[in-house]
């Protein structure tokens, strides 16, 4: 059973590491940090690196390529220092976060505030259920579409899903308030 104190310590270490990594603009330090995080990841290293790359590649790749092209056009050279430091920093910070997500129970780490951790548990569990049903809304339209559905019908379907979402949210709010009352959460 993980202790709340340990989880909180991991949370604080991660926060400190993120802030430190964000200050670094020296390729050697960034590479050293990245090496440490990769070592700490152990057997999960490939999976976590893949996730970190997938999560950041669209933005980082676009910015890196356009900046490199612009720099080349202006100065006939590549901004190597920028490319190396920024890409290292982005990868280091993303890996730090994915390692943290994998190794820490956030709900325990935030247990210093009973209300905050309760709020998070409630919100996350409901979000996941809502997300599954939204997937079904998409499939529901797909299964009834003989031809490509027009813009008007796609808006109707999206609005209907949004309306259903808020309806569900209202009902859930009601239910969990009752459940909390019956378990003596208030007063």
């Amino acid at each position: 059973m993980p202790s709340a104190a340990l989880e909180r310590a991991k949370f604080l270490v991660w926060l400190a590491a993120i802030v430190a990594a964000s200050w670094l603009s020296d390729a050697a330090w960034l590479a050293a940090g990245l090496g440490l995080v990769l070592l700490a990841a152990g057997r999960a290293v490939f999976r976590l690196t893949r996730r970190a790359l997938l999560a950041t590649l669209a933005f980082t790749g676009t910015v890196s390529l356009t900046y490199a092209a612009w720099f080349w056009w202006q100065q006939d050279a590549l901004p190597l220092d920028w490319l190396v430091t920024v890409n290292l920093r982005v990868l280091l910070m993303a890996l730090l976060t994915f390692l943290f997500i994998e190794r820490t129970n956030l709900f325990l780490a935030l247990g210093f505030s009973r209300r905050l951790s309760f709020l998070l548990v409630l919100a996350v569990s409901q979000s996941l259920a809502l997300r599954r049903t939204l997937d079904e809304f998409r499939q529901g339209l797909d299964s009834r579409a003989l031809v490509r559905v027009g813009l008007r019908d796609r808006y109707r379907a999206a609005a209907r899903a949004a309306g259903w979402l808020f309806d569900r949210a209202l009902a859930n709010a009601h239910e969990s308030a009752r459940a909390m009352q019956s378990r003596g959460m208030f007063r």
Partner: peptide
């Protein structure tokens, strides 16, 4: 679908 809500949007 089991939940008919997901099919109705008109």
């Amino acid at each position: 679908f089991q939940n008919p809500d997901v099919m109705l949007f008109n």
